[in-house]
Structures are given as C-alpha cells and as structure tokens.
C-alpha cells in the first residue's frame, strides 16, 4: 500500500501537492430486492391490485446483499480497474457511483455527474446510427449546435462507416460489435468528470480496442477519472495504474495494478 501513497502518477492532478478527490465511496452497502421467481398466482392482476391497495410487499421478494461496506477514494486523473470474479458486485458498485442505484447504507460523493458506459445501454433500434448519436448527445445535455458538430466525429470514431454507409441504416441491422462501438463512441464524445466503463472495451475488434484505449487515455488527460470493469486482465494492465479487487461485495485488495493483478491471478488459479 505504501507505493500508492508515495508514487503519485504524473497524470494525477494536484493542488498544493494534495491530490484532488473526484469519487469518495464511504462504507457503501447495496441490497437488491429481487422480484418474481414465485408462483404464478403471485403475479396475477388481482393480487397486484391488492398489493397496490394494501401497499404490502410481494411475498416473493428476496434480498441480495451485493456490496457490503466498500470504502475508497479516487483522484482526478486516475484510471482505476475493478476486477473480481463474476457476481462480486463490480457492476453494482459502478451503478451506485453513477447514482443510478441508491445505497442502503453509507454514501457516495462525486464531483460532477459520473457517466456509466455499459454494453447493455440500449438506444432506439429502429433509428439510424446517426440519429441515435444525435439523441445520445442531447441526452448528455449538449446543445443542438454542439450535437451537429459532434455527430460526424462520433460516426468517424466508431468506425461503423468503414464497410459502407452504415451510419444511416437502422441500428437493428448492426452487429453486436458495431452497436457496442457506437455506444462507446457516443458516451465518450463528452468530457466527463468521471467515466465508468463496464466491459465496453471487450466487444470491439482488435483495431477498435486500440482506438478506445487511446480515447480512455485522452479522457484521463482531460482531468477526468476513469473506472474500468473488465475480465480481460490485459486491458486493465494497459489502461489502469490502480486496481481494486472486489470479492463477494468486499474490497479484497486496493493498490497498484501489477501487485493486485498478480494476487488476483494467483487467487483464480493462474490464467
């Protein structure tokens, strides 16, 4: 841990030698309430109405404690990798930081509005890629003038026009890789204070992955903080200098990427 304190990377911005925190996670607990999985009768319109009237909780609700008391601080200019086995709470933690999931205990403090970029971000499939890009930009709060300027850049960066004019075709005709690339291009079009990336880099082809890694570096240079969730240790190694290892909703290790990744790989039984 001493390394983390002593070797501040050159990309990390400071005021009077102090690092500027952008995300502070303070003893956060997140509990999911899972509906369904009950008998067919429990979901009938009649019982739904009854619950509606009596405000009683559904009998089939089960609670899943996904994040159990996570505490850390992220600084401006840092790129932090989040690793851990499936179901360890990585995506949940990202959603909580993005303010999309309320915490049950503890708090998350952020500078500005963090943006979550995930592969499950669905735009309107019946519309063309260009229209989706324009819509996405407006949804991020850009003005129509900025949008007009940004959309060609987004299409260019996503590379969906490399095989002909796909930008004007509906998104339902895209391959999963193409739409993932477009989504990444849209979300990364704006300089976010905090950018949260959930497995997004894993989908593109090798060339796009290189380009997106370059974009992540650019975003960091724009004094933002980047969180990256990925199962591809290689991607984490290349883009992040700090890594947090989450296991069963608890931080198992937090430190420089090489050390944490080594311990993680030992834990998972090698590659």
């Amino acid at each position: 841990m001493a390394e983390l304190t002593n070797t501040v990377p050159a990309s990390v911005a400071t005021i009077n030698g102090e690092r500027i925190p952008t995300v502070i996670v303070d003893d956060v607990h997140v509990i999911y309430r899972v509906h369904g999985a009950g008998t067919a009768g429990a979901n009938s319109p009649a019982s739904a109405l009854k619950r509606l009237v009596s405000r009683a909780p559904a009998p089939t609700v089960r609670e899943v404690h996904a994040v159990k008391g996570v505490t850390f601080t992220a600084y401006r200019g840092e790129a932090i990798g989040l690793i851990g086995s499936n179901g360890s709470g990585k995506s949940t933690l990202l959603r909580t930081i993005a303010g999309l999931l309320p915490t049950n205990k503890g708090a998350v403090y952020t500078q500005g509005q963090p943006s979550l970029l995930g592969v499950n971000a669905a735009l309107l499939n019946d519309l063309s890629g260009e229209r989706n890009a324009a819509l996405g930009c407006l949804a991020m709060g850009m003005t129509p003038e900025q949008v007009k300027q940004k959309v060609p850049e987004i299409i260019e960066f996503s590379g969906i026009n490399e095989r002909g004019d796909f930008g004007s075709l509906p998104m339902r005709t895209y391959s999963s890789g193409m739409s993932a690339r477009l989504r990444f291009a849209i979300s990364s079009a704006k300089n976010h204070d905090v950018l949260l990336i959930d497995e997004a880099l894993a989908t593109g082809d090798r060339r796009f992955r290189r380009r997106s890694e370059q974009r992540v570096r650019e975003l960091r240079a724009g004094a933002g903080t980047v969180f990256l969730v990925s199962h591809q240790i290689g991607t984490i190694r290349e883009t992040c200098e700090r890594t947090i290892w989450l296991e069963s909703g608890v931080i198992r290790m937090d430190g420089p990427t090489p050390e944490v990744v080594e311990a993680y790989e030992a834990f998972m039984g090698g590659k």
Partner: peptide, 20 residues
C-alpha cells in the same frame, strides 16, 4: 490527504456532492 479526515469530511472539503 490529511490525517483525521473522515470520508464525508473529505467530500465536504473538496465540494463533492452525494451521487444520485
């Protein structure tokens, strides 16, 4: 960042707001 500061105090010092 300075000893004795809790996470919440640190957030207040740098003007961070509660997410969501």
């Amino acid at each position: 960042t300075g000893p004795g500061l809790s996470q919440a105090q640190l957030a207040a010092r740098y003007g961070l707001s509660v997410a969501g």
